[in-house]
Design a binder for these strands. Structure first.
Length: 854
DNA sequence: CCTTCGTCTATTTTT
DNA sequence: TAGACGAAGG
């Protein structure tokens, strides 16, 4: 890099650090979950609605048909106007499905006389929901507000809160808590401990995963027990039953319950079911390929024919449109079942299928790469995306020495795009497979003063102090929520230890009362030290005071402020000398700001409600929420997703670079996309290598990643990557090799050095060799810019293996990366069976084999 | 009862 | 690397 440029960069970096550093840090740590809801409010005010580029311009309620169909291709048009039966829209990446969905809703409302309140649109994230609402509002005006546009989970919460009165047998009241994963894990850990289950053998996490699967299949605990085919199954079923029992006792549900219980409600209460079938005449589901069985059944319940009413005219069943792409199914680990979309025509007889194959997003080069990669998946309905934008720049590839160099290269290239090509930072995104990979990027970006934002990762709402504060709120809103109460019992430290907690627990169990009640009756609890008794009593006082505040109608932000102050949580952190605690204070302050914004927006919505004629049912729903500021706030927080936190691009600012996992990237698009960590073992992930199905899912993930790019796609990998201490030498991702070579312009490639794959910059004079087999090889210049990279460690193979055991990862000069599956013999006869993946399993004598233990 | 220190182990993706 | 957990000392 020329000195002048470097100096200029330094100056700019300093400036940007000044301008952004603080901002970047706090913002990365504290996303505002209500950004999405802000968009909705903007739309209501007729300002800042979010039209897609060149589409959906502002318009009035008297929109005429021609206008709604303008700019649509044949199949899109058909999807918009089709009525009279179920429709499946198979929408390839970038084929304009959001446009189809929004235009269809607008068309239904303004041309078909469909009442907005009878539209139910389900999206994958709150952000997508907010955007859809805004775009429909831009087309048909504010009457669109009566629509239900939400995620599966929010829609179910809404139905449950409204209808639980009809179903006392569920044992839930309307103010139920929603447990997230961490809460659920905590509860399951308690269950397993009390059942004397060995936590080593059955980690709460994995037991919970099975419970989750069962719920996604709509299997209850009794049924799970009946189906149990082994002692193992039985153990899980019993844990499931007890876990559920305690959830109900705490007046709480987990994520999976939201769906399962709603389905059960609709199945067992015909009156409720009929009510919603009558109400929702038009049902639209986005990302249908990611639905699980429970969600599928929910849709079925909602869209099946109505019971005939004697003497009344027959009401036709609700109309259903689902939109999806089986090639973008990337959530099967969470129970998503591609068969839902593949079997749609079978499940909904008379269904029409419409294919959207024209891509409006990417260049043909990018699409060719995507098609080539996804073409390697077996059992895939043939479809080929094509672009009207022919050609396009070649994909740029880069092999770095280490993950730090990779990050450095990415940062330099982003800078170049910004300086030379006039790209805004917000036009660029960096994707990786796992959250842990964000770190090197953050380090380099901070150093260079590149403004960035990490989406996901250690999330704001998962931070300890934030969870503590929220637990207070939940314990206030739902006093029988034992998990929350116990979490905060001794936070901040108030001298209530494990002994006291156990005594309270035993008392609660004996008396059959909630933990909170045991706290209130602490004087009766046997085995309490007087000292502890006093502390527990003070805690009870505190909680009663805070609940009193809510009863007086205090809004969420005030309750939160009182919690932080009265509990001493804030004081404890402020007094701490641990520098981390200062960040915690900032996070709590940020949480208060979030609550304030929530309250302010709720207020605006209320004002709107006064001005706009809203239909009765909308008012019903509002009445349910209106008096419960705290409850609604908690619910919103529980249901925010990572991708909800992505800021809308502001056309005037240079914006920030977005860093996120490939999963989070679904549904988004950027001019410039960096696909990083393209290494076998990283992406595709190690754990997926063994299974065909999982590998296919990884490939779909790569397809999703590639198709996020509008104009430029970059792929990169590191020859050496350190993961938990030790360096890993990962071979090139197989997905790289599935991209036709002529589409990639390698700016830097790897060479093979005595069997070691290293990137070009690591060559050390003597033993260099031409580019070998294990990396992408091409006509690229061997090495350029002379930035003085040093390989992380020498390529020497110095250590003779002393011992190996199953599970160790090893490197062999010709077979490559492998995993030890078994060992045999000892001393000079020691042998190891090593699985080299595509190279097969080899039995190697340790005395001779040039193995390197990693 | 709380703190501290050491050891251990886990690292996929998330509504 | 870090975060979580357990043992032991204050």
């Amino acid at each position: 890099m020329a000195p002048v440029v470097r100096r200029a960069r330094r100056a700019r970096a300093e400036e940007q650090v000044r301008r952004y550093d603080c901002w970047v840090m706090t913002d990365a740590a504290s996303p505002n979950p209500f950004a999405a809801f802000g968009a909705r409010l903007d739309a209501l005010h007729g300002a800042g609605a979010v039209p897609a580029p060149g589409v959906d311009g502002p318009s009035g309620p008297d929109e005429d048909e021609a206008r709604l169909l303008e700019g649509l291709n044949g199949p899109q048009r058909e999807a918009v106007v089709h009525t009279g039966g179920p429709v499946l829209v198979v929408a390839g990446a970038g084929s304009g499905k959001t446009r189809v969905l929004t235009r269809r809703i607008a068309h239904l409302i303004s041309r078909c006389g469909v009442h907005p309140g009878s539209v139910l649109a389900i999206t994958f994230t709150n952000k997508a929901a907010a955007e859809m609402r805004a775009r429909v509002t831009a087309l048909v005006g504010r009457r669109a507000r009566a629509m239900w546009v939400s995620t599966f989970h929010s829609a179910c919460v809404r139905i449950l809160r409204a209808e639980l009165g009809e179903a006392p047998e569920f044992g839930l009241r309307r103010n139920f808590s929603i447990y997230d994963d961490a809460d659920a894990r905590r509860l399951m850990a308690l269950v397993l401990r009390d059942e004397d289950v060995d936590a080593k053998k059955f980690p709460p996490r994995s037991v919970l995963a099975r419970v989750s699967n069962a719920k996604n299949e709509l299997t209850g605990p009794a049924e799970a027990l009946a189906d149990a085919a082994s002692g193992n199954d039985e153990l899980h079923a019993r844990a499931y039953a007890e876990y559920d029992r305690r959830l109900r006792a705490a007046n709480a549900v987990d994520f999976d319950d939201l769906i399962m219980l709603t389905v059960r409600l609709l199945r067992t209460h015909p009156d409720v079911r009929e009510k919603y079938r009558r109400r929702f005449r038009q049902v639209l589901v986005d990302e249908y390929q990611d639905t699980n069985h429970a969600q599928y059944m929910l849709i079925r319940e909602l869209c099946s024919p109505l019971d005939p009413v004697p003497g009344a005219p027959a009401v036709p069943p609700p109309e259903l449109m689902v939109v999806g792409d089986s090639d973008q199914s990337i959530y099967s680990f969470r129970g998503a079942d591609v068969r839902n979309i593949l079997d749609f025509e079978k499940d909904f007889p008379g269904a029409r299928t419409i294919l959207l194959e024209q891509n409006y997003r990417s260049t043909q080069t990018i699409l060719s790469a995507a098609n080539a990669v996804i073409g390697n998946n077996p059992d895939r309905p043939a479809k080929k995306l094509w672009s009207s934008v022919s050609g396009g720049e070649r994909i740029i590839g880069y092999v770095s020495d280490t993950e730090h160099d990779e990050a450095r290269w990415v940062a330099d290239e982003i800078d170049r795009l910004h300086d030379e090509e006039g790209c805004k930072y917000s036009d660029t995104a960096v994707f990786y497979r796992t959250n842990a990979q964000s770190r090197p990027f953050e380090e380099v970006f901070i150093r260079l003063g590149l403004p960035y934002r990490v989406v996901g990762g250690v999330r704001f709402y998962e931070r300890r102090e934030v969870r503590d504060a929220l637990s207070y709120l939940r314990a206030i809103a739902n006093p029988v929520d034992d998990v929350s109460v116990r979490r905060i019992l001794n936070v901040p430290k108030r001298g209530i230890g494990a002994r006291a907690e156990a005594a309270l627990e035993v008392f609660a169990a004996d008396e059959g009362i909630a933990f909170t009640e045991a706290v209130d009756r602490v004087d009766e609890v046997p085995g309490m030290a007087t000292r502890s008794t006093r502390q527990v009593r003070a805690f009870g006082e505190l909680m009663r005071g805070l609940r009193g505040l809510v009863e007086q109608g205090a809004p969420a932000d005030q309750v939160l402020a009182a919690v932080l102050k009265d509990s001493g949580l804030l004081d404890e952190l402020k007094a701490s000398k641990d520098p981390q605690d200062q960040t915690r204070v900032e996070n709590l302050v940020e949480l208060v700001a979030v609550a304030q914004e929530f309250v302010a927006q709720a207020h605006v919505v209320d004002l709107e409600a006064d001005q706009v004629a809203v239909d009765d049912e909308e008012l019903d729903a509002r009445a349910l929420e209106g008096d419960d500021s705290l409850g609604v706030f908690l619910e919103r927080i529980a249901l925010v997703a990572d991708s909800d936190q992505i800021p809308d691009a502001d056309p005037d600012s240079p914006g920030v670079v977005t860093l996120m996992t490939l999963h989070t990237a679904k549904g988004l698009e950027f001019d410039n996309v960096f696909l990083t960590g393209m290494e076998d073992g990283v992406f595709p992930h190690m754990r997926a290598l063994a299974s065909k199905d999982e590998l296919a899912e990884e490939r779909r993930l790569s397809y999703v990643g590639i198709t996020r790019a509008r104009r430029r796609l970059y792929v990169s990998r590191a020859a050496v990557r350190s993961a938990w201490g030790a360096p890993q030498y990962n071979p090139a991702s197989r997905f790289l090799e599935e991209i036709p070579a002529e589409l990639i312009d390698w700016q830097r490639t790897a060479v093979e050095l005595d069997g070691w794959t290293l990137s070009a910059g690591a060559r050390t004079g003597a033993s260099r060799r031409a580019a070998g087999a294990s990396g992408p090889r091409d006509d690229a210049p061997a090495f350029g810019s002379g930035r003085g990279h040093m390989p992380a460690s020498g390529a020497g193979r110095d250590s003779r293996i002393v011992s190996l055991e199953a599970g160790d990862r090893v490197l062999h000069p010709s077979f490559g990366l492998g995993t030890v599956v078994a060992t045999s013999g000892s001393g000079d006869n020691a042998k190891a069976d090593v699985d080299f993946g595509s190279g097969g399993v080899k039995r190697l004598a340790l005395r001779f084999a040039p193995l390197e233990k990693l």
